[in-house]
Design a protein around this nucleic acid. Structure first.
Lengths: 210, 210, 210, 210
DNA sequence: CATGAATGAGGGTTCATTCAT
DNA sequence: TATGAATGAACCCTCATTCAT
């Protein structure tokens, strides 16, 4: 899913890839701590391991860094999701596996997810579109998993909403862990959310069995 | 719930109240459009109807404005929630009313809610605590509404999670309306979320009846 | 001839006038030494007697300074020219006086004139138009002086060209004084140019007489 | 007239010559459009057809490029002038031919001449000396043409001034064509300037005849 | 000889904050 | 109390120049 729209003045594709990964790692680490606006381009350069001049050989503006970060986070989540879903045949049990994996992934990526929520609004429209499209595709994957694994239990439109709910509840664990984690472990959180889901879909039987 | 921690050099309490409301209205209007960081203190002053010097008679730093805004938004939601809940006796039907009101409130306050998500992280810790505490109290209200209106249908811990889910799903309507509103009207959204909730609580009967 | 198109964020008109004069003096002094591009805005601020922040209260961009300078120089020349021309009735003798004054003015303003030649090209078009219009009006004044003081000696179109020649020869004294001043004093230069002019206009008689 | 003071790290003289011509052509083309300061060394390298690294094999600093350009323009004008003057025997008619050629050359080289006026001032002194010396020699050529073609019509010192006037009026056509070309075609301009010149020199007879 | 990635000083500009009036 | 001119640290970004390959 490259579709790199960010231009670089450096020609060597491999180097661009490498440097951009450094930038992404550096930036994520800083954005986690202080957010996008409070992070300076010089800090990003230093954290990435090179000079400010070099940073600007690989991006055009600071906002490009934000997009690179969004894209990287989204790609990472997307790839993991594809792996999990494609590894399994459709079955209620496997739906549990998929959603469980998704929640755990969100747990691992707490900080990254928080970054996602910060500045989408202020991105230029075309870049914003891309970011939102990336989100949409992930909700679609969850929706199809529901429809495939529990056929005839949910209408298309119900599945869509449930997929959105799951998606956001995943983020919620990251976002609101300051309060949630006082009440539940990640295991308990997942277990309860899954039980609710299967109850909603009137599939308690399948849930217990699995 | 004043608990004003923001100091002002002006003594006249009434004036402080009035000016701060001007600030809050001006700032919300600007933050909606461009976010906190892209809004300047000068703009806030102008939008509030006075000069930059005057602005600084009522706040200490720009971050104070953010807190004032958070507090105002939270208070508004809180008051509305209290109104709805206290107006009704506990009953399944009234739980529907409460949650319905909550969702509609979130619909009205889409932009304000978006503001809430943007910069909490960068607040100084003590102020952050206050903001988070304000959130917590709203989740508690929802939780108690669930426990009171549908007694014995949910454990304490289940109600807590459901309240969190509802809370976040309300925000979600504001946050993700770019995609959700293509699929559902607000009425449909609320109806489906409510049906899911009552199904989870195995209270379909009560839901149909209401 | 104010027509100030340069915006300032400061309201007090008198102060704006005063500060802009400081800027103009400071900038001219620096542009004389190192040209526009090699002068930094910080240097302009310091030379003007205030901080960089204050400088930007009175201009929007560095290019504004250039325009202010152009305008000031042009206005100065214009005013002096108007004074001289209006003080005298039209007569051959007085044409000599006018042109003599013009050349001496150019002598005084050597450095300023050099600045005028430097960056007109890179100004934004609308501002450039203004600057060129200011030049045009001065050539017109010289042309009319010729036509009025030596009626029937030159056609309209000849007077136009002669005015242009005089105008540029005035600049030339400033521009090429590194070589001209080795050959002539300013008095000799003026005398010779005037004699050439009157010869061209076949008015040697009037020249000798005056 | 090589007298190359610009050092190159490349040894092969022929290559140096070739590369420098590329640089000069590229740079002139860019300086015409955006001036010296707004042109980057990278742009010069690209326009010249090679990399930034290679550019710096043939120059030491960006200012060297400016000198190379000055020198090339001056040489070009000089050579053309020499051709014209040496091709003709001294006669009033041929003076007209010489000056006419000079004006037409200036017309062709409008942009180049504009470049000449821009940055001489900021050159280092020794290089500046060379550029000015090159100018001086051209004025001398014009002066001698006047003295030779119209003997006894002008003193040495008058011829010097007239040569300067012609020299600058040639530039003026390039510099001020935005206004001059509204009034005259190049033919008319030249004709009038020549007529003025011959009148000044009291050689109307020779002018009409030629 | 040619290349182009790396460097970092320095440039233009902004904006939160102060303080004299 | 209200004003708004003044401040300067700090930001984003550019670009001449170098040097390892």
């Amino acid at each position: 899913m490259p579709k790199r729209s960010i231009l670089s003045s450096v020609k060597d594709e491999r180097l661009v890839e490498k440097r951009r990964n450094q930038i992404i790692q550096g930036a994520i680490s800083l954005f986690k701590q202080k957010g996008f606006h409070r992070t300076t381009t010089r800090e990003i350069a230093t954290e990435s391991g090179f000079s400010i001049g070099t940073l600007y050989e690989y991006i055009r503006t600071k906002e490009d860094v934000l997009f690179l970060v969004y894209e990287a986070i989204n790609n990472h989540v997307h790839e993991r999701l594809v792996q999990v879903i494609e590894a399994k045949d459709p079955s209620p049990k496997n739906l549990i596996g998929i959603i469980d994996s998704y929640y755990r992934l969100m747990d691992e990526m707490q900080d990254e997810v928080t970054i996602l929520y910060q500045e989408v609004k202020s991105l230029k429209t075309d870049i914003k579109e891309q970011v939102l499209e990336q989100e949409r595709s992930k909700v679609q994957m969850l929706k199809e998993a529901i429809l495939n694994c529990l056929p005839e239990k949910a209408t298309n439109i119900e599945a869509e909403l449930l997929a959105n709910n799951i998606f956001v509840q995943g983020h919620m664990w990251g976002f609101r862990r300051w309060t949630l984690s006082k009440q539940y472990t990640i295991d308990e959180y997942i277990h309860m959310q899954l039980r609710f889901l299967f109850t909603m879909l009137k599939s308690e039987a399948e849930f217990e069995e699995a």
